[in-house]
Nucleic acid binder design. Structure first.
Lengths: 111, 111
DNA sequence: AATCTATTTGGCCAAATAGCCAAGTAAAGG
DNA sequence: CCTTTACTTGGCTATTTGGCCAAATAGATT
């Protein structure tokens, strides 16, 4: 999985890169412009090393770029279209948000 | 995380539901219509119980619905728009697919 | 009712992921 | 050159996820 050269693997890497609360929050924050690692650390409230690793993963997935200026490293979204992507995600499931197919975990479910 | 009632949690559940090779393949297959669990088991080549659990997860995320007819349970995509969603995912990162930000794992990377 | 097929569930183990801490690197400033 | 600030990396545990097997459930068939 290290080098996602085929399409499914790249899709999976991208989806995984956003499928975590801290990473989603990071991506969301970066929509309004670049942020340094410690900005983002303050945002998500985890250890800076943890955040750094999240950023590395997102970068490897192709979501982010990094630029070092002085002591700080600024991360930036590579794509301009995250907002519409989120709308696309939200639009995936049109109807009831809170109880998605509520009986999905009842034993002996379908009837 | 069990009942994703807030927006980020629902987004994450949806993204996770697709961020796995078997589940992505299942979603892809269901684009051409409903399939039974053993159809899908043949498709992904894992134990049927494993596939059943993948399906449960995807269903809990709100991606799928299930309908039992006779002995079989048929799963179907809840949304009609998966294809355009995949295009949306692919479009997230416009440029070079094979080596996304190649120096992302070099030590002391930015310079 | 006994059996067969299709599926779900529970239990358990292995692998992947996420977290923290400590140590290392890099640029800036004294 | 020593220190400080900002990050990254390595190492270690803890949690989560994925997978298989065996057992349970459900409807169809005999």
């Amino acid at each position: 999985m290290s080098n996602p050269t085929d399409r499914p693997a790249r899709r999976i890497a991208l989806l995984k890169a956003l499928a975590h609360p801290s990473r989603l929050a990071i991506a969301d924050a970066l929509q309004s412009g670049e942020r340094s690692v410690c900005d983002l650390t303050a945002l998500v409230g985890a250890d800076i090393s943890t955040v750094s690793k999240h950023l590395r993963l997102m970068r490897a997935a192709g979501l982010l770029t990094a630029e070092k200026r002085g002591l700080k490293v600024f991360y930036r979204l590579k794509c301009p279209c995250l907002l519409s992507f989120f709308e696309c995600v939200d639009g995936l499931v049109p109807d009831s948000p809170a109880k998605p197919d509520a009986d999905a975990r009842r034993p002996g479910f379908p009837r």
